[in-house]
Design a protein around this nucleic acid. Structure first.
Lengths: 231, 231
DNA sequence: TCGCAGCGTTAGATTGATCTAACAAAAGCC
DNA sequence: GGCTTTTGTTAGATCAATCTAACGCTGCGA
């Protein structure tokens, strides 16, 4: 149906719009960096995808998904996250090993397979990194969340996801003793260098803003990310 | 490491030598038919694989595997058969649906994944079609077997494998009520057109030689394929 | 033993995905 | 508003895998 490469472009656009940035269009350079290819390559590919009716685009403009492109991209993300869940839950891989393998598995083409895998895993809603798994019809439950970096002092949060899937980040996360669903409290933010002092599992730790901005949290009491009236 | 395509060539050579024909070399045309490409394409690829030290070959000669090529090809077959087992045993696919999906899964590159999958499945020795699954070190248990087509009258056989993975064959096999491990007896072979009359599960059926030559059997009593002294 | 059918090769073209280098447009800044 | 930086495009090349068409070997059978 669609090539390995085309699928990767659509998946990346989904990731950069629907998921990461909360906007609905993305520039050619941003895409090139994300896909680790040169901008010239993206320009070519983007013309091809437009010709196929999968994206909206015009010379020197930004790229956004058409309805069809969005569905295909979401389907790849769905497969990726289901396979990650399989690798983690069934094959007992550490969560810092699963991303690269899922990059390959996500391109296996068989909706029957995807749906049976989904059932085999018990229709999970979130993958091991806490990210929402799109459903077969392309719908997603986007949890209302904020970055730990944006936490306000004294409020109690619950970690629900991480946004960096690199081995380095995930290993550091593990080594600190953190886990998805842990409760964490931000004590003080250092205005000079942005370091955060946090409290979790009775331990007090100092973390960098770079680390904190890859951790998603919700209010531990009401589950909402917005400043709430819980405390 | 090796491209999708290179892996497919090596896998096919393994299949046509180690498994199907019991010889150790294969011609360019035979390979071209098997891979569904033109002979000219095979000639090119074969030069490339020779340059990489994966096969033995010279102009106008036949192709055979080097030790390294054999290992890589067997690794692909191993992955294919493990995935088929997964699809059948865990995801409950019918055995006529699994081949095409496994064709895609077999190219996922991660020995860690392959070995964990192997363990998850309980280290199976045979896939759902009854074919031996090569082990991680490249060793294989080749069962001593013969084709149902070559069965002698009155002896009792046990079906251990099939050699045609096409949907048409497998569906017919199912519809007749046959199963791997069923016991079957050849009653009469019609000398004129080769039709076979067989008996299994108390049913008597007439089958074509084309059908019978895709079914592997062993002696039901001693497990050996050779004419034995059991009866 | 010789000719021809079948097997295998070569040359040249195509397609998809990528690159580099040079250029063009848009955005940002004073 | 004009200069500079950032962003994006174009042209032309490369590489892998494939094709077609034409040609070169080889071995079997008469």
């Amino acid at each position: 149906m669609f090539s390995f490469t085309e699928e990767n472009y659509l998946k990346s656009i989904v990731q950069l719009t629907v998921f990461e940035e909360g906007v609905d269009e993305v520039g050619v350079n941003r895409l090139a960096v994300y896909l680790d290819v040169k901008p010239a390559t993206v320009t070519d590919m983007v013309k091809k995808l437009k010709a196929k009716g999968l994206i909206n685009y015009q010379r020197y403009g930004k790229v956004s998904l058409t309805e069809e492109g969005r569905l295909i991209g979401l389907r790849v993300v769905r497969k990726h996250r289901l396979w990650e869940t399989f690798l983690h839950d069934k094959l007992k891989f550490n969560w810092d090993q699963i991303h690269e393998i899922a990059e390959q598995l996500e391109h296996v083409n068989s909706s029957e397979l995807t749906n049976r895998l989904d059932a085999f895993l018990g229709f999970p809603e979130f993958d091991p990194h806490g990210d929402a798994i799109p459903r077969a019809d392309g719908s997603i439950t986007m949890p209302y969340r904020k970055l730990l970096n944006e936490a306000v002092p004294d409020q109690l949060y619950r970690i629900i996801a991480v946004s960096d899937n690199s081995n380095e980040f995930l290993r550091l996360f593990d080594e600190m003793g953190l886990n998805i669903n842990d409760e964490v409290q931000m004590l003080v933010r250092n205005d000079y260098d942005g370091l955060l002092h946090i409290l979790f599992n009775g331990k007090e730790r100092t973390i960098s803003p770079k680390f904190a901005e890859n951790i998603y949290v919700v209010c531990a009491k009401c589950g909402k990310a917005k400043a709430c009236n819980c405390n």
